[in-house]
Structure formats: C-alpha cells, structure tokens
C-alpha cells in the first residue's frame, strides 16, 4: 500500500513541481544563449536583464515552492476535508506519514539537483569545468592535509549530517501540524505556535546538553581535526533522536487523537 500511496503522492505533487523545475532548466538555457549572443543594443538591452531576473526568480522558486508545497500538501491532504478520504483508506497512519516524508525528501533532492544542473547549463564550458575540477581537487587536498586518513569519514559524516537534519526539519513541521490540529478552531495558528514552542525547547535542551558535555570533557580537544569527528556524530545522533520523537508523536496523534473538522 505504501507503494500506491507514493505513486499518488508523487503524481499529485509532481503535477505542480515538475513544471517549475522544467522552467528553471529552460530559463538557464535561454540565458546562456542571451549572454553569448550580443545583439541586444540600446532599447533591447532590457531583454538580457529581464531574462536574468526571471532566471533568478525561478531558482528561488524551485527551492522555496518545494518547501512551502511540502507543508501545504501535508496540511491540506491530511488535516482538511481531504483527510476524510485519506484516513479512511485501508492503510496505517504511519504509511500516510511515510509517503509524505519520502515524497518531500525526493522533491528536496530533485530541486537541489535541478539547481546544480541549471547552473551547469548556464555557465559550463570545458575550461570552466576543468577549473571546477581543479578547485575540487584542491579542497580534497586540503581535507587530506588536515584530517589525514580519516578525511573520507569526515565527508561521509558531513553528508549523513545533512540528510539527518533534513529528516528532522521535515518531521518537525509534520509534528507541529499534527499538534496544531488538536487546537480546535485555531488549527493553523496552533501549528505555528507548536512549531515555535517545540523548536525553542529543543534549542534550549541542546544548548544545555552541549554545556554539560563541554564541562565534563573540559579542554580535551587538542587538535583541530578532532572537532568534526565530535560535532558531526553528535549532530547526527541528535537529529536522529529528534526525528524519531517527532515521527512517533505524529503517528500517535494520527492514530489515537485524530479529530478532523
């Protein structure tokens, strides 16, 4: 059933998001042409400026719309009248959450890939790609120099940290909406309040935790390269713990406390 939920979820969201990504890619190609063909003199000068502005807007829209859409979709599909259909399908509440979560992750990744691809379409030439490769090599070199043999581990930890914090931030929004829906009559306001209360509480907790850890370990950190190996795993573990808590709370509310309008 999760497969079917995902199929319909991707269909319902892709209808809106894919055209935006498509427009971004097309605009980057158009801009490349406009930049390279220098025929816009005098009054026609507005064309390249206009195209560039449109392009920048489309890039921002790709990221921003993906983010907003993810929130609106969750709220509208599960907490509004559409919830009467979704929650009477023969699926578990956790499967509903899973389908939304996986879809959000997929579109976030697709939107980032779209932007990278569009930058390539806009500016890539063999020389520039070569420069880019050299720059990457240099970064790796610096990494190797400062972290020694563990530099690969640092990169893996960094990627894991980004992925786990992505899960955490999406699930924080979901749990806030689920908690907000318990406030009868003020559901949207309730969701915002829940978001700020939860995120503030978590911030305070983490700060306290860090202070405690720091006071126990004292100034044991002797070398720079040890820092990422402490910060990254710590951050990954915290994100995973928070994600699990948000996920469980959302599922609990959906299966035991559901109260659609």
């Amino acid at each position: 059933m999760l497969r079917k939920l995902l199929k319909h979820e991707l269909y319902a969201t892709g209808k809106y998001l894919l055209p935006i990504y498509g427009i971004t890619l097309i605009l980057s190609l158009v801009n490349r042409l406009v930049i390279n063909v220098d025929i816009f003199n005098g009054a026609l000068n507005f064309i390249p400026v206009f195209m560039m502005i449109a392009y920048v807007i489309s890039i921002i829209a790709s990221l921003f719309v993906t983010f907003i859409f993810m929130i609106v979709r969750f709220y509208k599909n599960l907490m509004s009248d559409e919830g009467y259909l979704m929650f009477t399908l023969p699926v578990k509440p956790t499967q509903l959450v899973n389908s939304k979560l996986i879809t959000s992750i997929i579109w976030t990744i697709v939107s980032v890939i779209t932007i990278c691809l569009s930058l390539l379409l806009l500016i890539a030439t063999p020389e520039r790609l070569n420069d880019f490769k050299n720059a990457l090599d240099e970064i790796f070199y610096v990494f190797k120099a400062s972290f020694g043999k563990t530099y690969a581990l640092v990169i893996i930890e960094f990627i894991l940290m980004i992925i786990s914090s992505l899960f955490q931030s999406i699930l924080l929004i979901y749990v806030s909406i689920a908690v907000g829906h318990l406030f009868n009559g003020h559901r949207v306001l309730g969701s915002f309040v829940a978001y700020f209360v939860i995120s503030t509480a978590v911030q305070i907790l983490i700060t306290l935790l860090l202070l405690i850890v720091a006071s126990i370990s004292g100034s044991n950190i002797e070398t720079m390269e040890a820092i990422p190996h402490m910060v990254f795993p710590f951050s990954i573990i915290v994100s995973l713990l928070l994600s699990t808590a948000y996920y469980s709370a959302t599922s609990y509310i959906f299966s035991r406390k559901l109260n659609l309008e």
């Binding site: 009248d81 919830g83 399908l89």
Partner: peptide, 20 residues
C-alpha cells in the same frame, strides 16, 4: 483499522475529493 476500512464504504458530509 486497516481490515475494517477494506469493507466499509464511507460517504462523509464533506466534499473530500481534492479539487485538482
């Protein structure tokens, strides 16, 4: 639950089909 929802057909008062 899942088993009961397979055999219950429900028409709510709401219009629950997405507009799009």
């Amino acid at each position: 639950g899942v088993e009961s929802k397979k055999i219950v057909s429900y028409l709510p008062e709401k219009t629950y089909l997405p507009d799009w």
